[in-house]
Nucleic acid binder design. Structure first.
Lengths: 151, 151
DNA sequence: GGTACACTTTGTAGTTACTACAGGGTCAAG
DNA sequence: CTTGACCCTGTAGTAACTACAAAGTGTACC
């Protein structure tokens, strides 16, 4: 199987596959005649694992750690539990934070019901006052992203 | 006031201030004798506005748009309402998504109660099966970030 | 054989919102 | 006149990709 098929079967792009290879998440595959990368089912499985972890919002670093355990089946997996617990904590605290944001945003939104001139807009004026709810961007709990994705 | 004081008063770093100037969010300030940037209260206010928006997880692009309205007080602010509504939508859908993640992560976590060998770890095995709950990373709704912040 | 087309290769640059230097300059105090 | 705290410009790094550019490969059709 060439890179395009692998990508399609795992729901990502060829570039992403090569990127994972570069950063050591995927092993360098064999090459066929024309220098094309040649993959088999084991690659599909590993890449699926990675993509599944990504869909759970883990970082590549976390995934790297998990893969090390997968690659050493006799090792004790206690740290896996720990990693997951931490990750769950990060997600939970991000939810808390976003919920707070949502409330504040809705409050702001009610300050301007209808279109009018900017200088009288309750939203713009509301934003000018420093509510400063969260002085630091992230409460420092962990590694949970903001609201806007990479596109 | 020099850049350090401005930064302190708005809760960010001097580098961030200069970055905002570069990208056009803050106007180029006057310079004092030794080529130091010289700020006044209007800068404090504008920067506070920006930081407040950032604390609400808006992108610099969104903030730029809001600032354009602030800078044109006679213009109609209807688009401000729209921007905010959209942003609220993004935050809301991110919360939904993270809540789903949290559930799945907790389910996974229960698959391995205690430390054991990796090959028997329910978590690692659970991650290998492609649940593929969300084929695309973000459901495409908007611009809401993942779980891990910029550190 | 020619050529159109889809796919692949490597490598590099761009994205967001900063942060972290390096290698200098300015200024007041001691 | 040196020490220290601050400031200057400019560049590179971060995460996890995405998007090219410029070239090679493989197959189908005429």
């Amino acid at each position: 199987m060439r890179i395009g098929e692998l990508a399609k079967r795992t729901g990502c792009q060829s570039e992403t596959v090569r990127y994972y290879e570069q950063t050591g998440l995927l092993p360098e595959p064999a090459r066929e005649a024309g220098n094309y990368r040649s993959y088999d089912e084991r690659h599909v499985e590993r890449l699926s694992f990675i993509r599944h972890c990504r869909s759970l919002d883990m970082t590549l670093e976390e995934i790297r750690t998990l893969l090390r355990f997968r690659d050493a089946p006799e090792k004790n997996c206690g740290d896996v539990n720990e990693l997951l617990d931490e990750h769950i904590g990060h997600v939970a605290s991000r939810i808390t934070e976003l919920t707070r944001l949502e409330k504040e945003l809705k409050r702001l939104r009610h300050l301007c019901g209808k279109a009018q001139t900017s200088k009288d807009c309750g939203i713009l004026n509301g934003l000018a006052k420093g509510t400063t709810a969260s002085r630091r961007h992230h409460s420092g709990t962990g590694h949970v992203h903001r609201t806007h994705p990479a596109r």
